[in-house]
Nucleic acid binder design. Structure first.
Lengths: 228, 228
DNA sequence: AAAAATAAATGATAATTGTCATATTTAGAA
DNA sequence: TTCTAAATATGACAATTATCATTTATTTTT
């Protein structure tokens, strides 16, 4: 099985401050798992006892609203970690993590993580920074959801998806989402999302190739996202 | 000047795990300040080098949107702490903290806080839990802003305001907000907020006594907040 | 490959929400 | 107090967004 001290994950995030010894310890205790598209890596309300390192693949973090609708809170990809908030706060997981494509994930038991937190203040601090950044981004999201019209939020979301996932060899945003998932990200009805995407295409701002979306005019999108 | 080890603050939050010695150190270095209604305790984008303990008074945490509108993210009252996120993440403050009434606040220099974080893992952990809880609440807020109609959000907000601030001797929610501030909390136009408040009053769910709001039927509000 | 199921697209219409205008009330300053 | 400014309230209307119905396209299953 692969070794944590050689893993690409350690180049990212909080994990980059871990010593060789700590990574070896992780290696000895970790389990690798494959999450198939559509399956849940974490489920809202459940407790977990470890940290997930996303090796490969993409997932969405969602919340089920009281009205039964799914809200997508965040997208996660290879190199990201999941579950640290729950470990640190000793609370159940707050979001569902659902695979958007097949994923390769490593699971590192809570005990090892807590040990590193105790031994390695820098690791601990990096986890805190990660959570703080998420809080900061969440506050921005609240503001935008509350005050921006759907069209602006769609533009914003498309830019952010390209930022997160990059583009493929045809310059399309490198993630496959259904129209419903896009709608659940910006908080609108699926039909509205479809209509606004069609408008953006008609205006030459984006191109739609099946589920693939290509941004043609980033500046125009940026303007729309700011209400112009 | 008052002494931290006798302060009511230490009954709350992360501070409750601090030792007598730590509190004495805080006491020696702290400064007390009065923030007048309308003044800012913290300002978005500025850096701070310490922790604020709110002794008394209320404030709103806001974010200025790209469209120039103010979004209220959170309300803060006596017993709460502010600035720990910025200290821990070593980033500028993300939100404005504006006094809703005159406030008494203590400021404890960053150095003392960082020392306690190093010495006292439980203190550190409690700060993390505080930030984690905020993140969890923020995610819920995103979902509600994105998916619930304004009426539901208003009902939700009224319940939450009573939860946070309690009621005065006339059973009114114990905080004075302008209609504009209520609108900026739920993310709507001031006129819409006014109209929906009037409707709730007409339906006998709340009573409006000037700026004071009294919840008459908590169950009805709860139902409205959930879309019934 | 054909059939069935799911997703996307579009029109028609209704409901929600925002904007502008204006009146009324309240709070603050001279 | 009296004046002035600001906040609240309400109507009229426009813009945005949701819902429902239906068609077309795409994906999945048999």
């Amino acid at each position: 099985m692969s070794n944590c001290s050689h893993c690409i994950m350690k180049r990212f995030n909080a994990l980059k401050t871990l010593s060789h010894d700590e990574l070896e310890r992780f290696s000895d205790h970790k389990t690798s798992l494959i999450i198939k598209k559509g399956e849940n890596l974490m489920t809202e309300g459940n407790s977990i006892n470890g940290l997930y390192c996303i090796q490969d693949g993409k997932c969405k973090l969602t919340k089920l609203n009281t009205n039964g609708k799914e809200q997508i809170i965040k997208f996660v990809k290879g190199g990201d970690i999941l579950g640290h908030r729950s470990i640190l706060s000793e609370e159940p997981v707050g979001l569902n993590a659902t695979a958007l494509e097949d994923m390769r994930v490593c699971f590192i038991p809570k005990g090892d993580i807590l040990e590193s937190i105790k031994d390695n203040p820098q690791f601990s601090l990096n986890l805190i920074k990660n959570i703080s950044l998420q809080l900061s981004q969440a506050n921005t999201a609240i503001s935008q959801m509350a005050q921006k019209p759907v069209k602006d939020r769609l533009a914003e979301t498309l830019l952010s998806l390209e930022e997160i996932f990059g583009v493929d060899n045809e310059d399309c945003i490198d993630v496959i989402l259904t129209r419903e998932e896009i709608a659940n990200t910006i908080g609108t009805a699926t039909e509205s999302a479809i209509r606004l995407l069609s408008n953006l295409k008609k205006d030459g701002v984006i191109d739609l190739l099946g589920k693939k979306i290509k941004i043609l005019n980033k500046n125009a999108l940026k303007n729309i996202s700011e209400g112009y």
